[in-house]
Amino acid sequence: MTVAELSAVDMAQANGRYAVELHNTHIYYGSFRAVKDVSLQIERQRITAFIGPSGCGKSTVLRAINRMNDLIPGSRLEGRILFHGKNIYDPDVDPVEVRRRIGMVFQKPNPFPKSIYDNIMFGPRINGWRGTKAQADELVERALRGAAIWDEVKDKLHQPGTALSGGQQQRLCIARALAVQPEVILMDEPCSALDPISTLKIEELMLELRRNYTIIIVTHNMQQASRVSDYTAFFLMDADRAGQLVEYGPTEQIFTSPNDKRTEDYISGRFG
């Protein structure tokens, strides 16, 4: 059974608790093991934050969830990552489909050098979207509204997306991800290149999106993690530089009464 068939069934029930589950996942770049034995379950329609010091493998884990690591020559994964109960690393699963269902927003805004309109419609068009011109306009508007940028760009839909400000570009990229109607959105430090006001806008947006989407966000900003996320996963490198999951739980608990001494040290700013 492919993800497509599963998801149809699943969607009807709409009560599976977890959107994504990692089971004993190890990730390698060539012979270097970047991530060691990570198991965690991501709850549906919640925001999960990955935190940890630089180089501990947060991005690597995040990118494994929609098979973006496939694009890096020499990268390899052991273990299982389940999406609707199906291992997305099974040979019969096409990464293209995985990526359509699990969207991604990157650290640096990367709008295509096309018009705002074409940026939004790019995903739907390649994924076999069919509809009238009016429906396309509607889709663009909804995606842009969904990313809370409609009001700022509605008069310049046919100007290049690269001409927007950094924060606007990032929201455009979120809108672009929304337009293919994914279920999960992965965000890798989406605010690190932005000013505080743009950051605030994106945080508000995430809380809004939580109603319909499962969001996983990597952040170096402790306040941000505690402000927006429902769950927090703390990663750390072990002695041979392989990233490990140290602690995972509701954000409240991780930030107020962590079980692990290392988590407490990190959160209170004692290292990292």
């Binding site: 293209v96 990526r99 359509r100 991604m104 990367n110 790019f122 995903g123 390649i126 672009r176 991800a177």
Partner: peptide, 9 residues
């Protein structure tokens, strides 16, 4: 990456 992330081949 942005393109692949949207499910492009």
């Amino acid at each position: 990456e942005g393109s692949y992330g949207l499910g492009a081949t």
